[in-house]
């Protein structure tokens, strides 16, 4: 059985409980009091010491208009109804929250890159780094198409989400999913989550949110030889808005081709040097 996450960003309220729960359970060190100054998100991105990261996306509409008498209370209470005084909802824009995490690729580029075999797939089919094997070569870092896996400077080794391997072995769900108060983070069998995701997207479409889609499928977000992700997301905007690539690729797909090209070049250069020996 393969386990994974389904992160439904449409119900995320940006409470960061997942970030905190992850840090606490996995005993990850603090990242310092760095203020971005641009948003409520002072974490910024995933790293070797941050395995869950809540992105705060301010999503303004192109047309910023507030016309008529805007009843802010009515606006807050029910945003789908026609607003009193002909106020246009467009004016306020929208907050988007998204709890980012390791995508646990079906074919993981970091695992392909790892020369020590430290990165494995465990019995839950999650991508797991064996901390006692990793020697900190750092080659997995630029290999990851989502910028998840990162070396921890003082430690030297690479770290990322383990999908709470220890908790799963004891039959518990990962700390972030447990802590999530709105069930934005769902944990379970990947096949079950796929069904839940499809149902949720269908519901959203029925409600008029046509832009909802699942990220992490072989069509979007799990492309180019990665074969999909075990951590899927329900998104409401372009993947780039959430700092995610639309069509990521497996960087190692062309290693064989590069070897062939290099071999041809090697033969040609040998011939060039041999010709230079002519009298």
């Amino acid at each position: 059985m393969a386990t994974g996450f389904l992160t439904d960003t449409t119900v995320c309220i940006g409470c960061k409980a997942c970030e905190v729960a992850c840090k606490q359970w996995n005993q990850l060190p603090a990242d310092g009091y760095n203020l971005t100054g641009a948003s409520y998100d002072n974490t910024g991105h995933l790293s070797g010491t941050t395995w869950r990261h809540v992105a705060f996306i301010e999503n303004p509409k192109k047309q910023r208009r507030l016309s008529g008498d805007v009843d802010l209370i009515a606006l807050a209470e029910d945003v789908t109804e026609t607003l009193p005084g002909n106020a246009e909802l467009d004016g306020l824009g929208r907050w988007n929250f998204m709890s980012d995490v390791c995508k646990h690729c079906v074919e993981a580029p970091c695992q392909q890159a790892c020369p020590t075999g430290a990165i494995i797939r465990n019995e839950f089919d999650n991508v797991y780094i064996q901390p006692d094997v990793c020697n900190g070569c750092g080659y997995c870092v630029p290999a990851c198409p989502y910028g998840v896996i990162t070396q921890v400077p003082n430690d030297g080794r690479a770290f990322k989400c383990t999908l709470c391997y220890d908790r799963q072995r004891d039959g518990l769900e990962p700390a972030c999913a447990k802590a999530c108060p709105t069930n934005s983070i769902m944990f379970g069998d990947v096949e079950d989550l796929k069904v839940i995701a499809a149902e949720r997207v269908a519901t959203l479409h029925a409600k008029g949110y046509d832009n909802a889609f699942v990220y992490g499928t072989p069509e979007v977000g799990g492309t180019g030889g990665i074969g999909g992700n075990h951590s899927k997301f329900i998104l409401m905007d372009d993947p780039e808005t959430y700092n995610l690539p639309r069509h990521p690729f497996m960087p190692q797909v062309k290693v064989k081709g590069a070897f062939v090209a290099s071999s041809i070049a090697a033969a040609a250069l040998t011939a060039v040097v041999a010709l230079a020996f002519r009298d």
Partner: peptide, 23 residues
């Protein structure tokens, strides 16, 4: 020298992975 954990350099010899140029 460039490794994060230089004392573990021999772990490179644990496996041979044709798809990893580093290996």
């Amino acid at each position: 020298w460039d490794l994060g954990r230089p004392e573990r350099f021999l772990n490179m010899m644990r496996i041979w992975k044709l798809r990893s140029p580093m290996s």
